[in-house]
């Protein structure tokens, strides 16, 4: 009873989230003191069932927090590819950027989440966008020594320029 709707969402407790929303439907998109919605908390913690439930109830996947954090960037940072897919299916901005110029693909690279990187590439993520410190996804992969991800990125670029 002491947990907020945000914390309940992060715990993955669909039933408790539903109980709270039934009592107060304004909680669906309620932003906490940093602007995070329950959907963002669930996305950050990889709680797919809660994410699906909140989206089905009409939670806004495009809301950004005060420093422009989004559910997509949080899911990408955590490597939660199923959640990334669900959010992209709803038309969220795949190139959304936050307080340090971080985009979903930059976070997926930083977290070394190869499936997420691949999914974002397949859905058209912009590889030219750099962080505020000037790192593109490829440069970041190289700097962090994430060789498999570097290979995926390079192969993607080669495909883009393939005559086929």
């Amino acid at each position: 009873d002491c947990l907020s709707i945000h914390q309940l969402a992060a715990q993955g407790d669909v039933c408790q989230v539903a109980v709270h929303l039934n009592k107060d439907c304004s909680l669906l998109n309620k932003q906490d003191d940093r602007g995070f919605t329950p959907l963002m908390w669930a996305a950050a913690f990889g709680e797919k069932a809660v994410v699906d439930y909140l989206l089905a109830e009409g939670a806004d996947p495009k809301t950004v927090a005060w420093e422009r954090e989004s559910a997509l960037t949080l899911a990408s940072m955590g490597g939660f590819v199923d959640i990334v897919k669900s959010l992209l299916a709803l038309g969220v901005d795949i190139n959304t950027y936050d307080w340090n110029g971080g985009t979903p693909i930059l976070y997926a690279v930083r977290g070394n989440h190869i499936q997420c990187v691949q999914e974002l590439l397949d859905r058209g993520a912009d590889l030219t966008i750099e962080s505020d410190s000037g790192y593109s996804p490829t440069a970041l992969a190289v700097a962090l020594g994430h060789k498999k991800i570097q290979k995926v990125l390079e192969e993607h670029v080669l495909q883009l320029y393939s005559p086929d």
Binding site: L3, A10, A65, E67, M77, W99, N100, S131, S133, Y135
Partner: peptide, 21 residues
């Protein structure tokens, strides 16, 4: 980043520790 139920999730500095380009 360490996730905790007691504070909002946060996104880390993308290039913390890396030299500026």
């Amino acid at each position: 980043s360490q996730l905790s139920l007691y504070c909002s999730p946060s996104l880390p500095n993308i290039t913390l520790g890396l030299p500026a380009t």
